[in-house]
Nucleic acid binder design. Structure first.
Lengths: 335, 335
DNA sequence: AACCGGATTGGCAGCGCTGCCAAAAGTCGC
DNA sequence: GCGACTTTTGGCAGCGCTGCCAATCCGGTT
């Protein structure tokens, strides 16, 4: 890889063709291993590529290629602050990298307008697929996605109608299962502690499922605390303290997720409240950390990595599909 | 945005020009707000764009534009499982999105060969910049980056020589400061508990700094436990138990990061060991969760978001730069 | 020796856009 | 109302690659 090119101009396929003494099309065929070429041609091209340090220009390649869609996947997630989404990304990148597909990502901060802007920006790279989070989008987002002529996969949530493919689990069902678990254990004065529901629509669906299961048992929430801002252990800790001050007779708390629940657990440790004797705690997500606690957290484990993998697998498919990957209730020792 | 296009063919700039009754160059000028055009032309183009639902093709745009480098940033991080990297990404995407730069990411799994392959793949999109993690790379990776004619920013670590720009902090200094803190508090029988050092070179640098500070005080590590696999609270918990079984007389443990330390703290809670009276714990990273613990963890907070932001800011710069953003030692209550 | 079918090859248009240039349309002062 | 400007505009080459087509090569047949 000697650099005898005039700096400023990168090595092109034409340069390689000249160096190898073959035509451009032959170089293209060899590089993509597509069409037939002789062994000798293959060797000469490989040698020239190595010698010149050629890196193909995929912008040009995708533009020229038919369908003109790039080996790119456009991904929009609402946040990177919650472990869920990095996990999702992990599943996605692992599966996509294996197929030589690159990931272009955007973070919407739970803002549908930003999501729409990001979708437009991502579509301008003519990705082969668009991976969104959740089922609720601006009408404009949906129109863009439809018009973009790309495969659309909506991840995490299956409670509702999708644009194209949907991979996830039912958040309502998670909420209902969590409520039934608490009810079965005899808890009756149950509060909810969560972060902003306007923003996290899937947390709102879980709560709706939770409340309707309570209602089936003739009960209602015994208090609720909604903290502004993102979920975090600190927020969960402060939230539980506020909740207990208002409703000292609570016997269980359902948290919007494990981060909040962990904060609640810390609050109990600090206040010397026995868990679950005095107060039961129930989370959501099934983080690793929840399992390492002195008392493993009672929670619901979601198949985050698997959602990413399956979503990646969906790209090659066609037509509407819904894949419900379910969830696993972990009994733990806090409820 | 009515869809009277023949499906299969996306709207092009030429379509917009025809619909607006102007030339292609005028459309291009209006869309990029570059060069001069009349108010009337602007309106007609805007109307046609909205009516046709035109999404520019940036593949073509970047290919045609001079310099031919795309408004893309190629990012390679070693992992998504550790909070550090999502945080870093968060800083990056926030800053880059504001400038209309999209992020293409790759995850190397701490494997230099995968990193090299990813760099090659990313360069094929002709990004404006390449953002790597750490300073240690394959020779091939460095050659590719150099030949690619892109701005290269290496993040997180400043202990060594960079290719181009470097943004981070000194991991050695973090280790040394941590050691000095423990020494100043009177701890003398100090062990190290970490995950795989072959793989996480920055953790190895912290340990080196830690040990050299111990050596200055005439001390050496009083035991060390290296867990295979990634860092996690579960691993930290099991590791601490193993460590204590071998060295029951330990008075402090330095962990490779907060995840491990949290697991260690849980182990102490479970075993009824007083922290820090019987055993002091010291972490690294300064996670939110560490601050929400009943006893805030003693640790070092790293400027992860800020590294992302500064790295993004570096892209517009030129020439070698090193930005050391330092770190903050948090006294906490566990050491 | 002429012929045939398949494997291999090179030339070239064109993907959708931008940069450049020259032409056209305004603008102003006198 | 006319020249000397400035602003606005459209045409077109070309970015680096791929797909298509026709040309060439090769080995075996007749």
């Amino acid at each position: 890889m000697d650099a005898f090119q005039p700096p400023g101009r990168l090595v092109t396929l034409t340069d390689v063709a000249r160096a190898a003494g073959v035509g451009e099309s032959t170089v293209s065929r060899v590089l993509r291993n597509h069409g037939s070429y002789s062994k000798r041609a293959g060797e000469r091209v490989a040698e020239a590529v190595a010698r010149l340090g050629y890196v193909p220009n995929r912008l040009a390649g995708s533009l020229a290629g038919q369908g003109a869609s790039a080996q790119l996947a456009g991904i929009v997630i609402p946040s990177l602050a919650n472990v869920v989404f990095p996990d999702l990304l992990r599943g996605l990148t692992t599966a996509l990298d294996a197929e030589g597909v690159q990931c272009v990502i955007g973070v919407s901060d739970y803002d549908p307008d930003r999501e729409e802007a990001l979708v437009a920006a991502l579509l301008s790279w003519r990705p082969a697929a668009l991976l969104l989070t959740g089922l609720e989008h601006n009408p404009g987002t949906i129109a863009l996605a439809r018009a973009g002529g790309v495969r659309v996969v909506e991840m995490i949530d299956t409670d509702g109608a999708g644009i194209d493919a949907v991979v996830g689990f039912s958040n309502r069902a998670v909420g209902a299962a969590s409520a039934r678990h608490l009810l079965a254990r005899g808890y009756r004065r149950i509060a909810y502690l969560g972060h902003d529901l306007q923003v996290d629509l899937r947390a709102a669906k879980r709560l709706a499922g939770f409340e309707s299961a309570l209602a089936e048992a003739g009960l209602a929430l015994h208090g609720r605390e909604i903290r502004s801002g993102p979920s975090s252990p600190a927020s969960g800790r402060a939230g539980l303290e506020a909740l207990l001050a208002r409703h000292p007779d609570l016997d269980a708390v359902y948290f919007s997720n494990d981060d909040m629940a962990l904060g609640g657990y810390f609050a109990c440790l600090s206040a010397g409240l026995a868990v679950p004797g005095r107060l039961a705690l129930f989370g959501f997500n099934g983080l690793d950390i929840a399992a390492a606690m002195p008392q493993p957290l009672s929670t619901v484990r979601t198949p985050r990595l698997e959602i990413g993998r399956q979503a990646a697998a969906c790209l090659s498919g066609e037509g509407p599909t819904t894949i419900d990957l379910g969830f696993e209730l972990i009994e733990g020792a806090t409820a």
